[in-house]
């Protein structure tokens, strides 16, 4: 049965789009049919991170308005044939995103895909609320930093009250994904630790993505890090997170900062 996921955070710049693309690719690599939807109307970027920016013809709002059929708007990934993108519109008219319209699109996607991953815009405005509206599960992307944790807490409150599941008295399954984690800074007490974040948010952990230049490199070339460099530390962390989403038990690894001698040598060779 199809799973609708929302990747959300409240705060901007924490890694929602990167995580959507990386997890989407990780799930699709195993053969699952995955669609990633960009809900950031006016400021779309998922197309860019996936390297599909030059292939966008129709978008989510075109489908809602009936200008295009879903099959016309879906863009198939060039590397993974089971990964699709439904881009956001560049129109400034955010009101074009309607609740009924989004419901219809999600319903149709449910019949065609195993995973429907909604990339939420930052903030708590219409786009963000609609991205979470029909979710079965939520990934709350959080940086170990005060403003991000505060916003995540706010989002958790909204997931528990403003989603369709919550209104029906059911629960949206919630997972925290910690991104940009720097183990040596956490060890020095300069950065909130994993336990600090989890204790404050009291929400289970999906994964810990280390801060890494591989993430930037991947977005530079328009390829999710899980495809661009599958053996890198952030890619491995995303693969583990994807396995956990499927309900598999994968031991949690707190990523080290990769400054061991072996890593240093290896990084030089790879560079």
């Amino acid at each position: 049965m199809a799973q609708v996921l929302v990747v959300t955070s409240g705060k901007g710049g924490v890694g929602k789009t990167t995580s959507t693309a990386s997890l989407g690719a990780a799930l699709a690599r195993d053969g699952a049919k995955v669609v990633v939807i960009d809900f950031d109307v006016g400021l779309r970027n998922l197309d860019l991170v996936l390297g599909a920016e030059r292939r966008v013809v129709f978008d989510l709002i075109n489908v809602i308005n009936g200008v295009a059929k879903l099959s016309q708007a879906l863009i198939r990934d060039k590397r993974l044939e089971t990964l699709y993108l439904l881009p956001a519109s560049q129109t400034r008219d955010k009101d074009a995103l309607t609740e009924e319209g989004v419901a219809k699109v999600i319903e149709e996607l449910r019949t065609k895909f195993d995973w429907i991953i909604c990339d939420s815009p930052a903030g708590i405005e219409r786009g963000a609320m609609l991205a979470m509206r029909y979710a079965d599960a939520a990934i709350i992307v959080t940086n170990p930093e005060v403003s991000s944790v505060r916003d995540s807490d706010r989002i958790i409150g909204l997931l528990d009250s403003k989603t369709l599941k919550a209104e029906r008295g059911e629960r949206v399954e919630k997972h925290v994904l910690i991104t940009r984690y720097n183990s040596s800074r956490a060890a020095r007490g300069e950065m909130l630790s994993i336990n600090d974040v989890l204790e404050i948010l009291s929400t289970p952990l999906l994964g810990i993505i280390p801060e890494s230049q591989e993430v930037l490199r991947a977005s530079n070339v328009g390829s999710p890090v899980t495809l661009n460099n599958p053996l890198s530390a952030p890619a491995r962390a995303y693969f583990d997170a994807a396995q956990r989403l499927k309900g598999e038990h994968v031991p949690m690894v707190v990523p080290s900062d990769g400054r061991g001698i072996f890593n240093k040598l290896f990084a030089r060779k790879a560079a």
Partner: peptide, 21 residues
């Protein structure tokens, strides 16, 4: 110096979120 600023961040968040919740 010894413990860094993370414990302060943690305490500030705990108080703030208790109120916001």
């Amino acid at each position: 110096f010894r413990r860094g600023t993370a414990p302060i961040a943690r305490e500030r968040l705990q108080i703030l979120l208790a109120h916001e919740r």
